[in-house]
Design a protein around this nucleic acid. Sequence first.
DNA 1: TGTACATCAGTGAACGCGCGTTCACTGATGTAC
DNA 2: TGTACATCAGTGAACGCGCGTTCACTGATGTAC
Lengths: 205, 205
Amino acid sequence: MSKQGYHHGNLRQALVEAALDLITEKGPQGFTLSEAAKAVGVTPAAVYRHFAGRDDLIAEAARQGYGIFGALMEYAFNQGKPTALAAFEATGRAYLAFARKYPGHYQAMFESGLSLNAHPELAAAANKARAVLEMAAVKLSEQLPADKRPPASMFSAHIWALSHGVVELFARGSPGAKSPYPPEDLLETGIGIYLRGLGLLPPDR
Amino acid sequence: MSKQGYHHGNLRQALVEAALDLITEKGPQGFTLSEAAKAVGVTPAAVYRHFAGRDDLIAEAARQGYGIFGALMEYAFNQGKPTALAAFEATGRAYLAFARKYPGHYQAMFESGLSLNAHPELAAAANKARAVLEMAAVKLSEQLPADKRPPASMFSAHIWALSHGVVELFARGSPGAKSPYPPEDLLETGIGIYLRGLGLLPPDR
DNA sequence: TGTACATCAGTGAACGCGCGTTCACTGATGTAC
DNA sequence: TGTACATCAGTGAACGCGCGTTCACTGATGTAC
């Protein structure tokens, strides 16, 4: 933060952080390059020393988001050991915690409409994060008899969709503004019922 | 569509439809009043005869969306009778079908970031639609013993979240670009497992 | 049926604005000797 | 330790653009008599 005068020192990262703040406030489409530049006290033209343009800046923000996301998921999963079930549930909670704590990253990742194809590094980060989720699903589904086991990728897609839906509909200002329950509860009970449906939890309440 | 010359005839609705097309293409933030006006062959200023501004136009699009959505849900639910279960599953399918068939409406409703409070008519339409979903949940949960019955609003929130998550992650170009399964299958199996978890479907596959 | 007039819907010009992007530039930093 | 020079990061002015919004206006439509 210390102004060293002419040279900023770490403008690139400062821009990413300013972009994240702006995204948090106004959404991924609602911020401009110039605003980000102004936020860090720099001329718009300076941005081009570090990024090809607006999209490139958002992509970098999203990339960093996937990094944090993946690490957080992995950490939560490991914390939950030795029970595969506990690990899985911890991962679900971590998902929501991430969305709450890093709203700018979350939006850059999931609501910016960036094409993954156009940003290979972003795609790589996203795939790595997704792999963590799938691994958790694989571990857990190993507890099911092989013949009743749904594909782990389907399993993790369900949980991911549920989590994402809870975030979008109930953890933000969106249409479900009057959220009927705390999102955390909603997600936890939802995952619970789902796991019971898979036979991973006893049918009794 | 017939040009009657000077007077358009039904400019208001034509603008809404142009807006929907633009939203489908570029997202709710990615279109401008001027574009919508140009799309129907009219001066930007003409828009102000019918709408207070851009947000008002989007709000009207969303409002119409909630109308269609609610009607579709209700129809699907009624079609599914007499089985509460069949009715519920039909409703789930209808959700996805709506998102597919009316992407502009869907985005205006769920991704535009409109404040429901600022648009009372929109809020009314949204509540009405939500009521349909809850009613379906109530009917279905009546089949459970009262002591094991989760609140219907939680129940419907779960299903809604799952549906929305599937739409956002797997039925659009978004991060899950390489959708592992057809969204329809994903949603159907997900709801199936969930209902089994509630005891509304037999535990065996 | 015809005429006069009120209402209405869209025009087109104008405004100020902030945007993205480019460019030659300059001041700061680092390094070779 | 000092000096000369290359490299680098950010400046500031400029551009053309499309935007939202306003305004007085005008042509079309509807209606009263």
